[in-house]
Amino acid sequence: MLAYILRRLLYALPILIGVNLITFALFFIVNTPDDMARMQLGVKRVTPEAIERWKSERGYDKPLFINAAASGLATVSKTIFFEKSARMFVGDFGRAEDGRDIAREIGQRMWPSLAIALPTFILGLFVSVCLALTLAFFRATVFDLWGVVLCVAMMSISGLFYIIGGQYLISKLWRLVPISGFGDGLDAWRFLILPVLIGVISGIGSSTRWYRTIFLEEVSKDYVRTARAKGLPETIVFFRHILRNALIPILTGVVVVIPLLFMGSLLTESFFGIPGLGSYTIDAINAQDFAVVRSMVFIGSVLYIVGLILTDISYTLVDPRIRFS
């Protein structure tokens, strides 16, 4: 098992290097640091000295890959690629435009993100599986047909509508919970309840429909027919046989997003003013803070790859036919 995980981690390394190269190419080769400086300082009325100062303050005044002016190891290490891109592998993300250390900021901000994303994820999964099971139980009836149509309608509504509508209705008209913000400790639940609720509702449509098809695929299998032929009541067939077997693809399918929960959601966090990683990213995009966006791209990929490895491990755990080979 350990050897298997180690090997999977080794496979992940070239992918991470690829991600690193892509972000480097995007941020430093598509546009030169000079262009970025001009953009940040305003395109008109910018002096070459101001550009040079901007670059040296941020360490962008070095060559891209090879520093011919330095000697020894420094020819490789005193370059933009090494200092800005390769250092990300050891968790050094540099500083944001406001001078704060990005790695520390990320360490602080991932907990509020998780506080929203984790309940949304668990509750959403539970609600969707229950609804999908109900639809599958009443399959090929009018109830099922309209349930699916309702699901399609719900997934056709923009995520923005759920957030704006929910905030308006619950916070502004009914004044049940604060419209946005975040609190520490136990007080936080008042701020969490609305974003979690909205997150769950906006996800119901697509996931219910998806899980329903998984249930229906399971319903038509031979072992279900055998169970029925044995004379088992339909409820036992559903809860003891179909639910259990259908949960395997459902659960292994969602494992991949678990690490990404740390990243939070861009929309939810910015609408509700939650100081998490999602709103951090949005603020960085609006302020055109390239260092932060670069770091978030890298971290997002790391978390996704961790999710892929977890998925593989979860497959081997739930399905004994898959071996660690």
């Binding site: 992918i15 690829g18 991600v19 892509i22 972000t23 995007l26 941020f27 598509v30 546009n31 262009d35 970025m36 001009r38 953009m39 395109v43 990404l260 990243m263 861009l266 990213t281 995009i285 055109q288 390239f290 966006v293 670069r294 978030m296 791209v297 997002g300 990929s301 996704y304 790859i305 892929l308």
Partner: peptide
Amino acid sequence: TVLNSIPGVLLIAASVLMMQVIIDT
């Protein structure tokens, strides 16, 4: 696999930011 492992919104955000720099300069 490399492209896929970058979360979609972030990759789009990074690319659009770079496109804005090109357009503005």
